[in-house]
Design a protein around this nucleic acid. Structure first.
Length: 681
RNA sequence: GCGAGAGUGGCGGAACUGGCAGACGCGCUGGUCUUAGAAGCCAGUGGGUGACCGUGGGGGUUCAAGUCCCCCCUCUCGCACCA
């Protein structure tokens, strides 16, 4: 990546967590707080390593359409995060110095409405703008104050917009007007060019700013409904309209004007069309010990030299002390730091920062395809065979972290020729979290439910069964101690019914086709079908388990009068076998035990999944709902396959129907085959 | 503000293509067993108890709506000074 320019080092303002004592990527700052420890993140100017994820912004966005197996929510979050916007860069000339002040705008149609300019406090041209101006001192004090504020406060929406005039003017290349250049605390250096043109008539922020500092407002987009007058405007007009006060572009609809003015800007070489991204490059330097060393060596003679392949991987040193004093121990380790330059052989120093651990998780899935490969990160053929991941499961909290980084890495690795695929994960399921009394259970927040206690008291099978039963996987799971009891009780019920009849069925062969028509045999096959479908359909284990519960209830009912006939014994035997197999994914230890005690010599884990007999689930009789005017009035039990005509006749003959139609002739009769008859009167 | 998702008994949740709303479990009630309890087992359990009313609210389509359409409310999550 280094050789391709996708890994680079630069000095910039970065997110610094004072509690973790490390730099964080933008994705790892949530609402101005550290994603791990919730400390307020500070702004700090440091030289750090970055991955150029922005080089892939376009593809990361456009190939979102290929992710058909991902939840909409995650796709939206990624789209928002990447944040594409299309616009124009325009060069304004600074009066006096002749320097170019480049701004980015998505609204070239409002270029004639510029009444002032705003730049970020960090803007590199600031010093030259204020040089020799009487405002210089005040501007510096203002900038110092703004830069001291932490990131959370600065990007807070409620933060009051503040600014100060630099004393400099920039010339609008379209109309030659002078616009005063201000510094604004709301202008972000990281986005666009760090400088903006301000059009108070058509931008709410600029409108407020102009109002506060008494800057002029000029309408250049006229509301076609009612004429706008600058002096009486209560807010910026941001709707579409017709151009005014815009020289030769007057009277154009603003949509067309956007294109015409952009064309003009490009023709006159005073700017160009461009795209901007909210996405920033991924800062990967971490001042931590635990992380992969950045394989770079600094040599006084040769400069920055990547560690050659033959010397990879760079391993973390063992002779370090963890002082907890807030500096990476690698900095202190001379055995690690001091090395020789791979290029000239002279004395050199290793980079002592490590990589963000998200780097590792960005390609582990490729490594998993050939974990024993020792000459390369992974084997291309193996990766080609196994990838992409058919079904990926993870928490929603990784929507713009791991899931975005992994997509980026996959594309980079593809472009390096190591792998032939565009996307790592075909289908994504974002599972919910465990909630107990409103508190979330997570790796970083701790266990709200004590697993040791659950395991000791009930065992892992009960815990798993409850977790899967209580809610579908994509939803948060409300933990309930009583619910766990219920799962425990269910396993006992299964155990009890099997043991109660084990002597009756132990040496009996399971029932086959000859048992079709038996109600438990039918239930068994219905359950096989249902459980199989529920697992395959979005992993709805909760309904699969409820089907197993129904089947067990049926077994209790079936055996209530004793098990005496051969038919009952064979059917019960097949029911027990099927039940054990079906429950095995949810309660594997339990199922294994039961399977062995029913005389099966092999492990249940190696048994094939049962298949339902389609003939066995056909019912001989069906219950038909009889409605009068759409309301259920009666039920009929009819032989399966009864014709619509016969069903209609049976319904009309029903005494309840006669009662509710009061002898009126039916206007219309709707028959849904095998389900329902609705008599409309 | 923008975007996504959700709203169903006392609770967790079912109802896949419009066709018995509330499967299954929890809880609760009663019975059985017991000296008594616990556990187990059995039965009942949306509200009124009249023929009615019930899936956040209001309209609509349809023989039929939790499900489809329109409007509104509430909640959760994400984004949000991005020029």
């Amino acid at each position: 990546m280094y050789e391709r320019g996708l890994a680079y080092k630069k000095l910039s303002y970065v997110n610094w967590c004072p509690s973790c004592n490390t730099v964080l990527a933008n994705e790892q700052v949530e609402g101005g707080l550290c994603w791990r420890c919730s400390s307020v993140v500070q702004h700090k100017e440091l030289e750090q390593w970055f991955f150029k994820i922005t080089a892939y912004a376009d593809e990361l966005l456009s190939s979102i359409d290929k992710l058909t197996g991902w939840p909409e929510r995650v796709l939206t979050m990624q789209k928002n995060w990447i944040g594409k916007s299309v616009g124009v860069e325009v060069d304004f000339t600074v009066e006096g110095t002749g320097e170019k002040l480049t701004i980015f705008t998505t609204r070239p149609d409002t270029l004639f409405g510029v009444t002032f300019m705003s730049i970020a406090p960090e803007h590199p041209m600031l010093e030259s703008l204020i040089k020799g101006k009487k405002e210089a001192g005040d501007v510096r004090a203002f900038v110092q104050r703004v830069l001291r504020e932490d990131k959370a406060a600065r990007t807070d929406e409620k933060q009051e917009k503040e600014g100060i005039f630099t004393g400099a003017y920039a010339i609008n290349p379209l109309n030659g007007e002078k616009a005063p250049v201000w510094v604004g605390n709301f202008v972000l250096m990281e986005y666009g060019t760090g400088a903006i043109m301000s059009v108070p008539a058509h931008d709410q922020r600029d409108f407020e700013f102009a109002g506060k500092y008494g800057l002029p407002i000029r309408v250049v987009i006229q509301d076609p409904e009612k004429g706008l007058v600058a002096d009486s405007m209560q807010q910026a007009y941001v709707e579409d309209g017709i151009l005014a006060n815009s020289g030769t572009f007057n009277d154009l609809p603003n949509g067309a004007a956007k294109e015409k003015i952009a064309d003009y800007v490009e023709e006159k070489k005073i700017g160009k069309r461009t795209k901007n991204w909210r996405l920033r490059d991924w800062g990967i330097s971490r001042q931590r010990y635990w992380g992969t060393p950045i394989p770079i060596i600094y040599c006084d003679a040769c400069g920055t030299v990547p560690v050659p392949d033959s010397q990879l991987p760079v391993r973390l040193p063992m002779d370090v002390e963890f002082t907890g004093k807030g500096q990476s121990p690698l900095k202190e380790s001379t055995s690690f730091r001091e090395t020789t330059c791979p290029s000239c052989g002279g004395a050199a120093r290793r980079e002592t920062d490590t990589m963000d651990t998200f780097v590792d998780s960005s390609w582990y899935f490729l490594r998993y395809c050939s974990p024993k490969e020792d000459r390369a990160p992974f084997d291309k053929k193996a990766a080609g065979y196994w990838m992409s991941v058919d079904q990926y499961i993870g928490g929603i909290e990784h929507a713009v972290l791991h899931l975005l980084y992994a997509r980026f890495f996959t594309k980079v690795i593809r472009d390096l020729g190591l792998f032939d695929g565009d996307e790592p994960f075909q289908n994504l399921l974002t599972q919910g979290m465990v909630i107990k009394d409103g508190a979330k259970m997570s790796k970083s927040k701790g266990n709200v439910v004590d697993p040791d206690f659950i395991l000791t008291k009930y065992g892992a099978d009960t815990a798993r069964l409850f977790s899967l039963f209580a809610a579908p996987p994509e939803r948060d799971l409300e933990w309930s101690d009583q619910g766990v009891d219920g799962a425990y009780r269910f396993l006992h019920r299964v155990w009890a019914i099997v043991y109660r009849h084990s002597r009756d069925v132990l040496d009996v062969k399971p029932a086959g086709a000859e048992a079709r028509g038996d109600r438990l045999y039918r239930k068994t096959h219905l359950t096989i079908k249902k459980v199989t479908e529920d697992i395959e359909r979005e992993f709805h284990f909760n309904t699969a388990i409820s089907a197993l519960m129904e089947m067990v209830n049926e077994m209790y009912d079936y055996t209530a009068g004793g098990v005496s006939t051969d038919r009952q014994r064979t059917v019960l035997r097949s029911a027990i076998d099927a039940l054990t197999l079906l429950i095995s994914p949810f309660a594997p230890h339990f199922a294994e035990e039961l399977w062995a005690s029913m005389g099966h010599p092999a492990h249940i884990a190696n048994e094939p999944w049962p298949r339902h007999d389609p003939e066995a689930i056909i019912a001989s009789e069906v219950t038909i709902i009889v409605q009068v005017n759409g309301k259920v009035r009666s039920k009929l039990t009819l032989p399966a396959g009864t014709s619509d005509k016969d069903a209609e006749a049976a319904a009309l003959a029903d005494p309840k129907v006669k009662e509710f139609t009061r002898g009126n002739p039916p206007k219309k009769v709707i028959v849904v085959q095998g389900k329902l008859v609705n008599v409309v009167v």
